[in-house]
Simulated assay, not measured.
Amino acid sequence: MVPTVKICGLQSVEVLKSIVHLPIAHIGFVFAPSKRQVTPERASELIAYLKSEAANGVPIPLTVGVFVNPSEEQLAQILAVAPLDVVQLHSQETPDFCRWVREHFQVKVFKSVSISKSENKVPTLADLSSQLDPYIGTIDAVLLDTFDPVYGGGSGTTFAWDRIPVYQEWARSAGVGLLVAGGLQPNNVDRLVTAYNPDGVDVSSGVETEGVKDIAKITAFVERVTRK
Rank of each mutant, 00 (worst) to 15 (best):
V86K: 00
L62M: 14
Q11I: 14
F221C: 00
G156Q: 02
K117Y: 06
R36P: 05
L184E: 03
F97E: 10
I115T: 12
P61R: 02
L46M: 10
I7D: 13
I139E: 05
S18A: 15
H90L: 07
G65S: 06
P70D: 03
S44Y: 10
P123T: 13
P95N: 09
I19V: 15
K111H: 02
W170Y: 13
V176D: 06
L143D: 09
D214A: 05
A171W: 11
F221I: 00
S205P: 08
T194I: 04
F147E: 15
E103Y: 04
D145A: 06
L184A: 05
A141L: 12
A220T: 12
C8D: 08
V212F: 11
V20S: 08
L125M: 14
D85W: 03
R36H: 08
H90Y: 14
W100H: 01
Q131W: 13
L10E: 06
I19C: 08
A48H: 12
F221T: 00
V142P: 11
E93Q: 12
P70G: 02
I136R: 12
D199R: 01
Q77C: 12
P33K: 00
A216Y: 03
D202N: 01
V189M: 00
Q11S: 15
T219P: 00
I218C: 00
G154Q: 05
V193Q: 01
A76L: 11
T226H: 08
Q77T: 11
G211M: 08
T63Y: 13
N197S: 14
N197R: 07
Q11Y: 10
